[in-house]
Design a protein around this nucleic acid. Structure first.
Lengths: 328, 328
DNA sequence: CTGAAAGCGCTTACAG
DNA sequence: CTGAAAGCGCTTACAG
């Protein structure tokens, strides 16, 4: 591997000059610059990034820690972040925390030790430990300690779902919430409830029931069965079930099928997230698409310009209307 | 940040000695070693990895490039690789090639420029460009150029499926293949066909038809419709359809449902891969689980001990029997 | 505008 | 077994 020294010798200049053209420092005059570039091309010179890192105390790498990369939402986020980082010629170092606080800590520390440019973390559910570092640490989707959070506007997204169901004529609606310990779950529930309250009038009231659940598939199925069992005899079965996550919604779909309820004929169902599975199930799921590309762009901006960073930032998702909802 | 110099001063030894205890070089005598360790603890010393990298010309990082991290199989692979790397205190740098040859090249080169310890690549479909580097490059799942390949034993896996269907009594079987341009697809098809040929006897013959398709969901649905349309009138409809991928198989499930065929009552269906979706569809899919953890371990071994590496290595998957297959 | 030189924080022959 | 010193390949004040 040729070094900067070889290039300098070949171009008959000092290493400082070579370094300056490398840094796109336009203090180097045209003829010299050309000579240096020719020498670099000829030798196939590539800067040694470790040496540069040692000098500048920073490398063109961004750390990303997620609870579990096999979660489709996090995978999509990782992909968008990698693309965004690449467009600024940075690489990304990936780490899984397995949703474990201790592992998360180890991973973040390891990343920091490598003097990355900054680290993005989707925190474990119960994470609240703040980290100190001389590079930006920003939380994504789920807050880490007291670090600024970039996330989807869950409140607004749920509101969009409420609007959608209301427009379709639904007036008896069940909402399956996520775990109350999670901020995301609370925001989604609050957004839904708030919007429904606004839409409900004495003349045209909406009956809303809230049901506690987990974010996963099985929980959706189970809670749906409970809801339908309670209302099996009467005609007071909800005409729509809004789930706090796509996985729950898919569980609902499954329960409905087992109970011979047609979706959306007998029951409208909505999710949240727009995981890839949402478009594959039968019927395809109406849901809120999380703006992963915008989230990625924003969070990377935070890394590069921490100064401009205000506090938290929420980005609205889009309603994706598919086949699991219909008008009454 | 304290440096090795600070530690040396505090412990009243030379920096060389500190470096030696850091390297777990047991030439340092006990009392000195203890003094040094105490000093490190007290100062909260952490080695500067960039400096180390500059000296040793290698960092504790492994590069991984996949076509698309949102593909659930690659995500699982990435997770297992990250875990395996972490157990050897290495981090992993992730890159997506978007299944694009040019992007793949850029990503691999970028990784190499960072003087990683080695790079693992799941090649783009039509990749055949070999790379030169002074660190190991090994291909995983899909071959890159002429680099050694670690992969699932697709031939054997398909054979297991064939055995399974045969044992259940199926004698009229349709196989939906993947694209013939892909090695994986060919291996799977060959494994299936070979095994069926062995099982088929003049007394107890098996009718096997092969149908060309893509690996994706839509292709499975489409090809299944064709198969069933061709045999709609006669009683010569296959009793089992083996798909070359889970996604295809899920497409098959969907087509079967639309055509009012009960799975597995009227038709047994099998996939390959065991993506997480396979256990979520109705009915849950019988398939071959790819041994991702073993693949990860093997491929990381190759990075660390390239000398021991022979040529390619194939690892067998396991048959996962679920609800989409039944005896006739 | 360019060169000479110091120095980033380590590792590792080389002495002793 | 330990220390003194060179050097990895860069960047960046400091002169001129």
């Amino acid at each position: 591997m040729p070094t900067i020294k070889d290039v300098a010798r070949k171009a008959d200049v000092s290493v400082g000059t070579v370094s300056r053209v490398l840094a796109k420092n336009d203090t180097v005059k045209q003829p010299l610059k050309l000579r240096v570039q020719a020498a670099m091309d000829e030798l196939g010179y590539k800067p040694n990034l470790a040496a540069r890192a040692l000098r500048t105390n920073s490398i063109d790498v961004i750390g990303l820690v997620v609870p579990d990369i096999t979660n489709p939402f996090f995978a999509q986020l990782a992909k968008d972040i990698e693309k965004e980082a690449a467009s600024r010629s940075h690489s990304v170092m990936l780490a899984n925390s397995d949703d474990d606080l201790e592992t998360e800590k180890i991973q973040i520390t390891a990343l920091l030790d490598r003097s990355v440019r900054g680290v993005i973390v989707v925190a474990t559910s119960d994470s609240n430990h703040p980290y100190e570092a001389d590079v930006p640490i920003v939380s994504l989707d789920r807050r880490l300690g007291d670090h600024a959070l970039v996330s989807t506007n869950h409140f607004d997204g749920s509101g969009q779902i409420a609007d959608h169901l209301h427009q379709l004529g639904h007036r008896r609606i069940a909402y399956i919430a996520g775990p109350d310990t999670m901020d995301v779950a609370r925001r989604r529930r609050e957004g839904f409830v708030t919007r429904i309250k606004t839409l409900s009038t004495p003349d045209d009231p909406i009956e809303l029931t809230i049901h506690a659940g987990q974010f996963d598939y099985d929980s959706g199925e189970e809670v749906c069965r409970e809801i339908l069992a309670e209302t099996a005899d009467g005609g007071d079965r909800p005409t729509a079930i809004a789930a706090a996550s796509d996985q729950q919604a898919i569980g609902v779909l499954r329960a409905a099928r087992d109970l011979k309820l047609d979706v959306p004929g007998d029951l409208s169902v909505t999710g949240f997230d727009d995981i890839s599975l949402a478009a594959l199930v039968v019927p395809r799921l109406t849901t809120i698409r999380q703006p992963t590309a915008a989230l990625a762009r924003t969070v990377i901006d935070r890394i590069f310009e921490p100064a401009k960073a205000g506090g938290d930032e929420e980005i609205s998702g889009d309603l994706v209307m598919r086949e699991s909802t219909a008008s009454l």
